[in-house]
Amino acid sequence: MATAEERSRLRDVPIPAIGGVRWLLGLVVPALLVVVWHLLVTTGVFAAHQLPEPLRVVGTLYAMGVAGDLWGHVAITLQRVFFGVLLGVAVGTGLGTLTGLSGLASDLLDPLLQSLKNIPSLAWVPLFLLWFGIGEGAKVLLIAVGAFFPVYLNLSTGIGEVSEDLLEVAEVYDLGRVEALRTVVFPAALPSLLVGIRGGVGLAWMFVVAAELIAASQGIGFLLSDGRVLARPDVIVGSILLFAFLGNLSDLAVKGVQRRVVDW
């Protein structure tokens, strides 16, 4: 009896009451992990030169922030990701639309693009260095390659999968090619495009690391490899956390746009 009572009390209590702060629950486990991490280092399970304690990482980032050099790294990485995503999404949208709409274009291009997407990001790096040098252009292009594929793949399939029922409506009401694209096909494919952009932004962060690890004198990826060279685990872990933070932030931003745009 007591258990049943307890259960009903549990159920009654309150999902709505904590609804507003429910997302905080997602922080509980990470917070615990940080505590465990701290304990593991302070009790000597991990040597401090391999894994610094959490506060030291925060301290290092803070010091770099105060000294000012952190912002340069963050800014240049953000800039690369931004332009890379812009380029990748633009080209992906263009080619995705083309192959989605035209069977001929799809037959010609899709097999090639499908196989190119399987090339790992790091594999491109030497070639891009050779072709485009170590300038910003090479990095932006590399990131664009990463952002391109999810956008292309999702949009191309999305356009191809627009409901036949709605296309027939467009046909019966003689909307005409352009009007049918505007009122039916593009809105119907918009959710796919946004899923693609979200994936593209995610991959852009992977590719920016590839680009910056190998050929950069600035950026969070450079910081990461610099940390290894200087044997500064605090810098390494700090850079990883920065990537995590910025990656999440950009994902949340795209998700926000997605929710606003795809609201039906």
Partner: peptide, 21 residues
């Protein structure tokens, strides 16, 4: 003109937009 057996409306636009099609 044809009125299909299923409504076949555009989910992203409102009643007015659908009728305007």
């Amino acid at each position: 003109g044809m009125v299909f057996q299923e409504p076949r409306l555009l989910p992203w636009t409102d009643v007015r937009g659908n009728v305007a099609v």
